[in-house]
Design a binder for these strands. Sequence first.
DNA 1: GCACACATACCGACTGGTTGGTATGTGACA
DNA 2: TGTCACATACCAACCAGTCGGTATGTGTGC
Lengths: 204, 204
Amino acid sequence: MARISAREKLLDAARDVVRAQGFSATSVDELCAAAGVTKGAFFHHFASKEALGAAAADHWSETTGALFASAPYHAPSDPLERVFAYIDFRAGLIAGDLAEFTCLVGTMVQEAYRTSDAIRTACANSIFGHAKTLEADIAAAIELYGAPAGVTAESLARFTQSALQGGFILAKAAGNDAPAREAVAHLRRYFELIFQPGRKGDAP
Amino acid sequence: MARISAREKLLDAARDVVRAQGFSATSVDELCAAAGVTKGAFFHHFASKEALGAAAADHWSETTGALFASAPYHAPSDPLERVFAYIDFRAGLIAGDLAEFTCLVGTMVQEAYRTSDAIRTACANSIFGHAKTLEADIAAAIELYGAPAGVTAESLARFTQSALQGGFILAKAAGNDAPAREAVAHLRRYFELIFQPGRKGDAP
DNA sequence: GCACACATACCGACTGGTTGGTATGTGACA
DNA sequence: TGTCACATACCAACCAGTCGGTATGTGTGC
């Protein structure tokens, strides 16, 4: 029976509680209670609350990275199909409670971008690192099918994350997941229009 | 000499400090110091910190509402040109410090959507209310030029806000305004592709 | 195979400062 | 003279972080 370390339990608790309440509004005591560990354990593993925040962002990068790496959207042989499969996979993740499908690092970086460079950097690595995993497929799709002038794979990959993060904010405001689903649908249509056959003004 | 009331000063201070630090991380004392008023004045005007948050969101709706209402993007006679002029106007607002051009209510709703219904509602009214001001022009553009099946003015208006809010998050992560400008550029291209002449599959 | 030295993981009472909020006072103006 | 718009003083709860201590390994020399 593999026992879960206090560190792991705190990281998992941080993921859940921070997505529901935000980082600043969550106290160390609350985190410990949610994780079922003591304050001593907290400060044994993390030098400060800020360090826990940065570690939680790194942990998020690792767990979501593994989820996306093993996801089925990499299967199609056509790169453009893989991109659409990615978008559809993201749409499928939008289900259940808001705090379950929204983004930890998107939430944290809004609160801490100016007050904690450690957290800001860890969140930036998570978001832009994930965007980077899409670049190869998008670049191959552009190579194969062409794209309007000025469209680059890097920029397009980043925009997928902008659309998603923005959808999450509107979903939180609305109190339901509809705006997030809607944002993904528009994102998909944007890609369909960019790569539609017979679009004028560019060549593969 | 029109004296500015403590209430107004607190609302303005909240706008600036909350955009820089977040709502939870900002204390009432800090707000009072930034506004140059005492704690007595704070609780004379607001029943609680939460009430100040909701009032700040409402104040944001009013001031930004006035800014957009008097902006020059309403001038063109063609509705689609007005939509592009709006997008370009938004692009022009992205300048200077991150805390100066990012969105107060987008920041607040991420922190408070689950803990304060008053704040969540005020933020939702601000975001969706602003989106609503775009609907007439977008609907007229669809009427005039047609749009792909499934595209509605309401949904498209909301998506403009998703793209912007997401751009702000990535900008905060990056530490500069580039991702926000980039998001607006992609949003513009999406509209160009939706309304491009000769697109297949639909009629005006 | 066992004693010893040291390391890691954790515990929980405690502290000094901060928090949102309250109670009471005061000057200006109607 | 009353009431509105603030100011001052204060409080109990809570905050992040500390600290002395314990329990359980783990590698090493004999």
